[in-house]
Simulated scan of single mutants.
Amino acid sequence: MLRLISSIIFRLLFYRFPQLAYSQEEIEEYEKMYSKALTSKSEIKYSSNFPKLHFIQYIASTKKVVLHGSNHKGINEFEPRRQTLFNGKYEEAVFATRDGIWPIFYAVFDRNKLVGNFRNACISSDLKYNYYFFSLTRETILSNPWTSGMLYFLPEETFEKVNHSLVPFDEWISKSPVAPLTKIEVEPEDFYFINKVSYHNPKESVIVSWFLYKLRTKFFIKR
């Protein structure tokens, strides 16, 4: 019952991505592309007519990988470093997620244009959907803070999911260094929720940002 109630609350507050149905042609193309990159130990050069996000979601949901997005395109190994979990606890670790959409935000958001702070989340409340929240300060949004970036596919073996109890964020951490299996370049247009990025006052509570999120995305002119 608690899980159902939380799912209803998240649905009211946040956006979710529709479930994808893959054709056999898509699956064969994605498998071939991914296998080729692993065999050659090279970057995935995406040339399919199917949306790149569909490929990323397919790999994220069918392979033993976690994903990490970054503005930096030439990372050969990820080293654990001191970062903050959503609950405010510090961890010295490599951060990643099993979700295919959330890390694209980190890949295409130009951190050099950040004014104040930013807030975001990927919440796994049931088996069918993840729920998403993305918010920047007004000044950051108006600077058009989008760029190309890189999405890295990391082996999941050393990662463990962080427990957030009532708010189950899709955060995974590794205390050991991790080398990517492969990577793929992404552009702002690959970020599904780029027009659902809200704004917030950097001094307001996160709860306020959550409750005003959808309202703000409907009425704030970002471009």
Rank of each mutant, 00 (worst) to 15 (best):
H72A: 14
S48T: 01
D110Y: 11
I101N: 15
H164V: 02
F219Y: 04
P155T: 03
N144R: 10
K36H: 02
E185S: 13
E91H: 04
V66A: 05
R223F: 13
V108G: 03
R138I: 13
K175C: 00
P202I: 14
Y46S: 03
I44G: 00
Y132K: 06
K32C: 10
E91K: 14
I44N: 00
I173A: 05
I101Q: 05
F86S: 14
H164G: 02
M150H: 12
P202S: 15
H68T: 02
L181T: 04
A21R: 12
Y106D: 04
P80K: 01
Y129S: 12
Y132C: 02
T84Q: 12
Y213P: 03
F153L: 07
V186I: 06
K203E: 09
L38Y: 11
R16Y: 14
V94C: 08
R98V: 05
A60P: 00
R3M: 13
T140N: 07
E185N: 04
S35V: 05
T62V: 06
S205N: 06
K52I: 07
S47L: 06
S61L: 01
S35T: 15
I104F: 04
V115L: 05
L127K: 15
F211K: 08
Y132I: 04
I104H: 06
H54A: 14
F211Y: 05
H164L: 10
G116E: 09
T62L: 00
E25Q: 07
E157Q: 10
R11Q: 12
F109A: 15
K218Y: 13
H200K: 02
H54F: 11
Y199H: 07
E92D: 04
Q83A: 10
R111P: 00
S48E: 11
E156I: 15
N49P: 01
Y34H: 08
E187F: 13
N120K: 14
T84N: 14
V208H: 11
S165I: 13
L151I: 04
E185K: 13
Y199F: 12
Q24G: 06
R16T: 13
N120W: 02
N163P: 06
E189D: 09
I5L: 14
L2T: 13
L142I: 11
